[in-house]
Design a protein around this nucleic acid. Structure first.
Lengths: 151, 151
DNA sequence: CCCTTAATGATAATTGATGCCGATAGTGTT
DNA sequence: AACACTATCGGCATCAATTATCATTAAGGG
């Protein structure tokens, strides 16, 4: 859970016998320049890169997102929308959690150092190598509580 | 986040103009009798009920799981296996969180009252109606750290 | 006991994600 | 700098979990 650069990513890939590629650098770069609170699905990223003329195949995008999530570079978010979203995994004090409305999918970020610490401690206690830790709250937002739309 | 019975479920459904059905009662019952630490996918539940002669169509199972999750009766878990798992949503002190190995998918439960409280407080603060709150840790378990299998 | 309509079951359709494979291009070595 | 090895890419086929459709059934309020 630290800040990656193209160089440190290459180093870590090579250490494992893997390779740095322009596609991986492009994707890392895209997430590093994403505003805090923004997150992308595979499709989002694909379109977004397509528009800036840096098109990368969907296959590679899916592969790379999974790879980076498993390396701890990206966080895989389940925002109740039927598909995964990704964001860069920044360390404390940028680390945050999500409060999600299950009806309209509106998502709020919030920070909570205590929950983060609890996660870190639990992983250590069990001897696990921590990649990500998220307190996810599913709830109904005020405006959806008032709405008459069923569930 | 409280313990549902067939009666209280019926009451809450009727209040919203919906109906109690034998299928919904069967499914609620199945989860209430599931051991702590167990969770089922839609397919799991389907097979499980099929075997006890209480067969319910897959369509209805999917519909009911989603309904109950959105009512706060069930928790929807993402255990990194490509499909959702569900478990009954028990209140404190039975409430727990999950530590998941992203390589082998082995999952450990753990309790942490502080994280739960942090979630409850955050939802209240924003005026959200809480359904579920889970601290999910993605990590690599000790045996997978030693394994040479890539990612 | 009706009547309205929510809910079910069977099946088709959708779609996020993965597998496959020939072509391409990083990386360590010579 | 050229080479060999093989990880990675792109394009497409495929898969599997989930959702949509719709005729039929049956809750539950009046």
């Amino acid at each position: 859970m630290y800040a990656y650069t193209a160089q440190s990513l290459k180093a870590e890939l090579n250490e494992r016998g893997w390779r740095m590629t322009p596609q991986r650098e492009t994707i890392l770069d895209a997430f590093q320049h994403l505003d805090e609170g923004k997150h992308l699905s595979a499709e989002d990223l694909h379109e977004c890169l397509e528009q800036t003329g840096q098109g990368i195949s969907l296959s590679t995008i899916y592969r790379t997102l999974k790879l980076m999530a498993r390396m701890g570079i990206l966080r895989e978010l389940e925002l109740a929308e039927g598909h995964k979203h990704y964001e860069i995994n920044r360390p404390y004090p940028h680390h945050h959690h999500h409060l999600i409305c299950v009806k309209c999918n509106k998502t709020l970020e919030f920070k909570n150092d205590t929950a983060l610490k609890a996660g870190v401690r639990q992983a250590e206690k069990e001897g696990y190598h921590l990649l990500d830790c998220q307190l996810t709250i599913h709830a109904v937002c005020p405006s959806c509580q008032r709405s008459i739309v069923p569930i």
